[in-house]
Design a protein around this nucleic acid. Structure first.
Lengths: 137, 137
DNA sequence: ATAAACCTTAGAGTACACTCCAAGGTCAAG
DNA sequence: CTTGACCTTGGAGTGTACTCTAAGGTTTAT
């Protein structure tokens, strides 16, 4: 399978595929005589794994860790896979909490503001941002 | 007030202050004879505004929009300020929803996995990522 | 035989918000 | 009068995940 076909099958670009190769996520082991990348069925499975891991929120470097384990399963333990997952879960939850703080503040600002054609001189959003105490992260 | 003093007062770096200047967020109007930046009380207020806007989640380019309004309040309306805020709120909510989908998936993966010393060959996280259907976005 | 559609590489560009560096000028204290 | 703490500039580097470009080689269909 050449790069264009694999890309089309999984709806990604050939650029992305080359990028993944550069970053050690998916390297076709063979080339055709003319130097074209040749991907096998197993490469397609690995790419599906990558895309699914991305879809649940893993970054490429986390996926890299997972791939090392996937490729050499017998030398790793469930524990290690789970700890990558739990670490990611913690990260995601932290990020959600941060965004929820933003949401709260923004919602308050939006609710207080009349949003009308009044000149912005007395806009509560502006004045609140001017007066608000503290701005920790 | 020289750059170092302002930086210390608001606990940010002088690099950041110069960065904000380069990006049109806060430009000291004066320089000392020797070319040092001189900030006024009003500059400090504007910087507080910037930091507070950051603290509620606005990006620097959104803050740029807000500053244009803040500086020239009489030529803008509440409506415009509110629409920037609501647009940001929508963005934040979208991002939260995405992260919550990640959280759901990751949580499911983590819960299913024994997390023990068992070899990773039968790890449910790995097998689920291999089997899972679809990977939209 | 030639045009279209594919493939190759290295390298630059994107967005975001800094952060760090080198090479040099200025200012206050001892 | 020198040391150290400050200030200046331009430019490069960071991390993430691509995306695009140029300049060229290959394959396939007509």
């Amino acid at each position: 399978m050449k790069i264009g076909e694999l890309a089309k099958r999984l709806s990604i670009s050939t650029d992305t595929l080359r990028y993944y190769e550069q970053h050690g996520l998916l390297s076709p082991s063979e080339r055709t005589e003319s130097g074209y990348r040749a991907y096998s069925k197993e490469h397609e499975l690995q790419l599906r794994f990558i895309l699914r891991a991305k879809a649940v929120g893993f970054s490429l470097s986390e996926i890299h860790e997972l791939l090392k384990i996937r490729i050499d399963k017998q030398h790793y333990q469930c524990e290690e896979v789970k700890s990558i997952t739990v670490a990611k879960l913690d990260l995601v939850r932290e990020r959600i909490a941060e965004l929820q703080r933003f949401e709260q503040s923004l919602n308050l600002l939006a609710e207080q503001c009349c949003g009308g054609k009044e000149p912005a001189q007395a806009c509560t959003i502006l004045t609140t941002l001017e007066k608000l105490d503290g701005y920790s992260r």
